[in-house]
């Protein structure tokens, strides 16, 4: 299955902005976070097709997964 990955803000640095990757069934949001070496503590929002999802959520063919970092300064 093909999944489009969209990264935001600092997560783009050294990675990419948008990329489509081929995965086998059963791939979860957490698997992608680990595959991309995104620091767990910095994860803000994870969305599939614009809807908030938990990291355990499994991806489906043609999904778009967006990952935003946490921002907390003032």
């Amino acid at each position: 299955m093909n999944v489009t990955l969209k990264l935001f803000a600092t997560f783009r640095t050294g990675r990419f902005t948008v990329e489509t990757r081929e995965y086998v069934q059963g791939k979860t949001v957490r698997d992608v976070i680990e595959e991309l070496s995104l620091p767990e503590d910095d994860i803000g929002a994870t969305l599939i097709n614009g809807i908030h999802v938990e990291e355990e959520c499994e991806l489906k063919d043609a999904d778009t997964l967006s990952i935003f970092p946490l921002v907390g300064g003032g």
């Binding site: 600092t10 929002a45 946490l70």
Partner: peptide, 19 residues
């Protein structure tokens, strides 16, 4: 609560970036 439901140590990317 939805924005910060994953927050663990209380800081975001600003800790490494400043402002």
């Amino acid at each position: 609560r939805k924005i910060y439901n994953r927050s663990i140590d209380g800081k975001g990317i600003e800790k490494g970036l400043g402002n």
